[in-house]
Design a protein around this nucleic acid. Structure first.
Lengths: 293, 293
DNA sequence: CACCTCTAATCCGTTTTTTGCATTAATACA
DNA sequence: TGTATTAATGCAAAAAACGGATTAGAGGTG
């Protein structure tokens, strides 16, 4: 199967055989054997060209996923065998990268400096699947996951805020009605995405019955704040962004709130994960106390 | 790995070797080889007893899942190779088993009698994961799935209804306020579940500020209707239950609505699935027309 | 304590599978 | 027509898997 996956990329027996350090004849036989065992051809080949069959295309994709899962299972087992030390993988929404996450990492690396944490870039897979397939160990998210094999705990709720430049006409006193922002230029994080926060944004705008004028879209909150500070538009971000050390912007609370959840595998006899969750809860309480409505 | 999975069940080399049709010596070597490759022990064995290590327990569970996935991948590939004929697996919420589903199956088996359909019992895994792992091909559900590799389409919305016995004091005219049902005895489908419908039910009751008195809980809609007809209580069910041929009950529309979605893998070059989806949409329209608000 | 039983590991010869070299066969291209 | 390219095949060597017989250690029994 591993040979096949390389071959499916190369579509060339001889080049593939070099890549996997074996002779061309042996590779040819291996693929034949595999096809015989499966009962159908994975590749169409005349004497000159090689190309994947439909079934072959499917198995290329699926086997790569599954062999990755196999490798991860092995890694995970090794961790368990060694007393679950080493590496914790964490997925997170961009909106906590300026306040919650740095603080969590700071307190945690102070306590367990030998522990390595991997911050996983948000992909298109859901946190649920990532957890269940052992891609990650902990997921922070704006909505809770539902799967019965997973645990989910709300850490805190926070308002979402209008963010404007310091010299902008809007402030707590001049802001009365969301509808009055119809002519403002917005800088928003990926409205087209399927994330919970983007969905919330869409809901706000449909509730108030207008489409925001957006000239820039970016996912990186820090960049948004810079753009806002430079008078390029206004934005909507979770409250906790103001805990970051950004200057030149003003936050105005809105009615809407977002939550932050931690999610993890229910039975994962890894005390490090438990410790991180405890830390997260404590930190959640601290942040809760810092929010002024 | 397959040997290991049997051994992990039996915890006995000789019995295992018989089950997998090989000698005890060879099995012993295979397991040793596997452990050596992994770099850690899967089983603790003294001369008398065999038991799994923690890592072994984990891999037993995970490998079984993944080897199942491997088998399913192969089956799926074979289907693709043969032009995707054969078997379609469908997951569904219990609430469509009395109206939508039978009609769909009837029209479909009439058109393609050689096609086999498998109705998958709802498990604790989410439809999303079941689709992505090729456990099922189509999922009907009360909420749409979000994963970017999956398609989701709303078929219709229907009210949820109070269901009472024919001789019950409640009817369209006497019903005014949900709150007035506080003293009624309810027969409800698994309130404690995490299904979308159960969540809706909980939301209704929390909105109106009382806990329903429930003496019976069951998931089987048909049974609920029988119990209601026999005066054992009242219930709340989706509108379409009244398309079933039940007598002795009366339906009273409530404000709340539930949707029905079809969900499937986006790129699944199986024209049978597409056909089922088309049929479902058509049937959805038909049902929509039959709903009298 | 001597003896038997049970069971996983090990020794060793046999069988099966995998691999590589050399060659073949089929195709494309000049 | 001739040459280069490339997948398949014949064959022998190497590696891996396998089975029978035996060993080793633990537990039980009289």
């Amino acid at each position: 199967m591993r040979y096949f996956l390389v071959l499916a990329e190369e579509l060339h027996f001889w080049r593939t055989s070099e890549k996997v350090f074996m002779s061309q004849s042996s590779l040819s036989r291996q693929i034949q054997g595999l096809e015989e065992e499966l009962g159908f051809k994975l590749l169409e080949r005349d004497k000159r060209n090689v190309k994947l069959t439909e079934a072959g295309k499917f198995l290329q994709k699926r086997w790569r996923e599954l062999l990755d899962d196999m490798d991860r299972a092995q890694t995970q087992a090794k961790k368990i065998n060694m007393g679950s030390s080493g590496l914790i993988s964490i997925a997170y929404p961009g909106s906590i990268s300026s306040s919650f996450l740095p603080e969590l990492l700071r307190t945690f690396t102070a306590e367990m400096p030998e522990m390595k944490m991997e911050l996983v870039e948000p992909t298109d897979a859901t946190n649920e699947k990532l957890l269940l397939d052992y891609h990650i160990d902990i997921a922070f998210s704006r909505d809770s996951v539902q799967h019965p094999a997973l645990s989910s705990k709300k850490l805190y709720s926070e308002p979402v805020c209008l963010v404007v430049a310091e010299n902008h006409w809007l402030n707590e006193n001049t802001y009365h009605d969301f509808k009055s922002l119809e002519n403002e230029s917005f800088i928003l994080s990926g409205l087209h995405h399927t994330t919970f926060f983007a969905t919330l944004l869409r809901r706000i705008f449909t509730t108030y019955g207008f489409e925001p004028k957006t000239h820039v879209e970016t996912d990186f909150g820090g960049l948004i704040l810079n753009l806002v500070a430079n008078g390029l538009g206004i934005s909507i971000l979770p409250y906790s962004f103001q805990f970051g050390s950004y200057t030149g912007v003003r936050f105005i609370n809105l009615q809407e709130e977002v939550d932050l959840y931690v999610n993890w595998r229910k039975k994962d006899e890894n005390e490090v994960i438990e410790k991180i969750i405890q830390h997260s809860e404590a930190l959640g309480e601290k942040i809760k106390a810092r929010i002024i409505l």
